[in-house]
Design a protein around this nucleic acid. Sequence first.
DNA 1: ATGATACTCGAACGCCTGTTCTGTGTCAAG
DNA 2: CTTGACACAGAACAGGCGTTCGAGTATCAT
Lengths: 225, 225
Amino acid sequence: MMMVRKSKGLGERHQKILDFIASYQREHKHPPSIREIGVHCDISSTSVVNYYLDQLEKNGHLERDRKISRGMRLTGNTPLGDMFRVPVLGVIQAGEPIPVPANDSFGAFTPDDSVEIATSLMPSREKGKELFALQVQGESMIDAMVNDGDIIILKPTQDARNGDMVAVWLSDRNETTLKFFFKEKDKYRLQPANPTMKPIYIDKSESLEIKGKVVMVIRKVERYN
Amino acid sequence: MMMVRKSKGLGERHQKILDFIASYQREHKHPPSIREIGVHCDISSTSVVNYYLDQLEKNGHLERDRKISRGMRLTGNTPLGDMFRVPVLGVIQAGEPIPVPANDSFGAFTPDDSVEIATSLMPSREKGKELFALQVQGESMIDAMVNDGDIIILKPTQDARNGDMVAVWLSDRNETTLKFFFKEKDKYRLQPANPTMKPIYIDKSESLEIKGKVVMVIRKVERYN
DNA sequence: ATGATACTCGAACGCCTGTTCTGTGTCAAG
DNA sequence: CTTGACACAGAACAGGCGTTCGAGTATCAT
């Protein structure tokens, strides 16, 4: 019978090292040395750090240039340098609920699809880890100035402040929509981004599920056919 | 009287080093060492390389982490890693002509403003050097599904193929617009991106200046207020 | 001529860093 | 109990690397 010491492929130590490399890289613009990793991860021997680094490389979390000082770099879905990698969780369309990230394994594997965004493009200081993206399908978001094929990036949240652009699921109407959100006396006002279009009002008795706050829209203009 | 040996800030040697660092980084994913620079740039002494590196740092072309092996990185408008830096040349609005890049000093200094785009987001294999960006002002591009404040990235071109989304200047109408372009029998059809809106037709006798082909639209959703 | 400035070379110094080797303790399987 | 895989520590080694220094050469203004 085969039993694994630590059931997960990634132990606490591994994760700690990975996190440290990422944060160090963000701060210093270059990867840490083995010894620096040791100090900050409470590992007293360089050989042990090397030991873990080897494993991380085997698992594909890391790339190494042996013999080269600080010759390591994070791979895949790790926020590298000044770029965010945002997972595309699915599509958003009129009649369907919005896929939202499972709370548990968030940083985990989403090798599906993802988009990379330069941090310099990020509006606020949104932490990249919490963001996710959806691909718009159909032309139902036209009043939000969002086209078929556009990619919207949003931050998961349940409540919005007035003026936020939110993705909401109106289960009563079986409708998904993107609107600017305003809470008024006894109802909600959902204002389209297109100023030529009129807002819709949702009574507070109606169900209104805010799924996330839209932080960015990206449109790759291909070809109109 | 003060005379400069080489009138330009950047000598041939400087440029060669800069180029080598860029190409080395692309290939190895990490910067070269001083000695490696020396070998590939025909400099026999490490101190000379260090000498030039210091100058490049003073000129702002380079950042250095002294004492740290390979602790250098290119700054500014150098296509680093897998990211494009696209210069924002100005704004685009209804009644104004579209700013287009001067043909001469393109790669030159545009320290104004710029946006960074991950190459993975680029639709075609557009070369980043030829792209430029404009910030949309006003709501005149609404029929192109482009909002006030959006950033559009386009490739300068004079002619378009059917189905391309182009930025055109209609001098007869004194109007700037973004539309899908179609050449028909004796006229041009400019099709709005918003499918609920009707196309406009431009007679071939009218002037129609294509300024560029839109390749991407980016919207940072801030706050509606 | 003379001195200043820019540029180049070569060598030596010493720290930093990845590697490797030996040894220790733990724990599950046989 | 023995064995062996696994996690870890510590020390020592060797090479890579940035730095520094002394010295030489060329150009140019004074």
